[in-house]
Design a protein around this nucleic acid. Structure first.
Length: 285
DNA sequence: AATCAAGTCAACCGCTCAGGA
DNA sequence: ATCCTGAGCGGTTGACTTGAT
């Protein structure tokens, strides 16, 4: 018993969309909004599968899409997010307003991969190529390590209710990544950071656990950056994109409370204020 | 001008997951 | 608890474009 097809394939168009089809889809969604993709084609008078309509809208027709070349800042942001998240294109796209997962995936495969290779960096591992070939056994990469952490955290967050009940209120970075994937409206499965760390250490002894709760290494030679480091960092700066026009450090500094007595910088890595990712902000618009 | 290879990207396919019956 | 359905994701394909020969 196979699964039923998503549409009647014999009576659907495939391949490139025509201008008329685009117009029909746009006008239908303008009038009725995005809704049930399965029934949309019929309602809109399109001989297309619902999946095809959804893809066309999301990847090409949506009015908020940013067309045109990727900027250098976007490139670097994609690289850093990829090093952390791996091929989680939709999550990466969630941090690049106006860009789609498909667009970023294509851009990665056609441009950034080559760019990294030219820099002598393995695009899959984000480590120097010679290092990767030198010790395969140690080539568990930063992002793989973090993905391990994510996976392990999920195992914890989806564990039995009994186990979940025992968990304190801290939600780890890793778990919050995965929870974002598991829809933000879900009940937050509270989990024990130490439990996750223990599991991570057990499976990935060389994993830098700080990465689960802190931003990438800062550029220590950059005095200006170090000055900022003492304060809270906005998301853009936390990714190493200092001096970006999108920097909002001043707002953060203005909003931050200075009464906690801690000398440690309070990063806002990936919107991870206080160690908890604002996963709502990651959602595809 | 013709041919071919490489690059690009829109679209498709198959799979997983959440939610409802 | 199980099954079914719809939505979404990531990998892959293939049509089209561009540049080199």
């Amino acid at each position: 018993m196979g699964r039923s097809p998503c549409c009647e394939k014999a009576h659907t168009n495939k391949g490139a969309w025509t201008k008329e089809e685009d117009d029909r889809l746009i006008s239908y969604i303008r009038a009725h909004g995005e809704g049930c993709w399965r029934s949309l084609p019929k309602a809109a008078g399109l001989l297309r599968c619902g999946k095809s309509c959804r893809l066309r809208w999301i990847n090409y027709l949506r009015p908020d899409l940013k067309r045109g070349n990727f900027t250098e800042e976007e490139d670097e942001l994609i690289i850093k997010l990829h090093s952390l998240l791996g091929n989680k294109w939709s999550l990466i796209a969630g941090r690049l307003p106006g860009r789609t997962d498909n667009e970023i995936k294509n851009y990665w495969n056609t441009h950034i991969r080559r760019k990294l290779l030219n820099r002598g960096i393995d695009p899959a591992t984000h480590r120097p190529l010679n290092e990767v070939s030198h010790s395969q056994s140690q080539s568990r990469t930063l992002h793989l390590q973090n993905q391990e952490a994510v996976t392990i955290a999920v195992a914890a967050s989806t564990s039995t209710p009994t186990a979940t009940k025992t968990l304190p209120t801290t939600i780890s970075f890793a778990s919050s990544i995965k929870q974002e994937q598991y829809h933000h409206h879900h009940h937050h499965q509270e989990m024990n950071t130490n439990m996750v760390k223990g599991l991570v250490l057990e499976r990935c002894p060389d994993l830098n656990l700080e990465l689960t709760i802190s931003p990438p290494r800062v550029q220590e030679h950059d005095e200006q950056f170090r000055n900022r480091e003492r304060n809270n960092l906005c998301f853009v700066c936390s990714l190493g994109l200092q001096n970006s026009k999108d920097c909002t450090c001043d707002e953060i500094v203005g909003n931050s409370s200075s009464g906690n007595g801690s000398t440690a910088p309070a990063y806002d890595f990936l919107g991870l204020k206080g160690g908890v990712w604002d996963y709502k902000g990651l959602e595809m618009k």
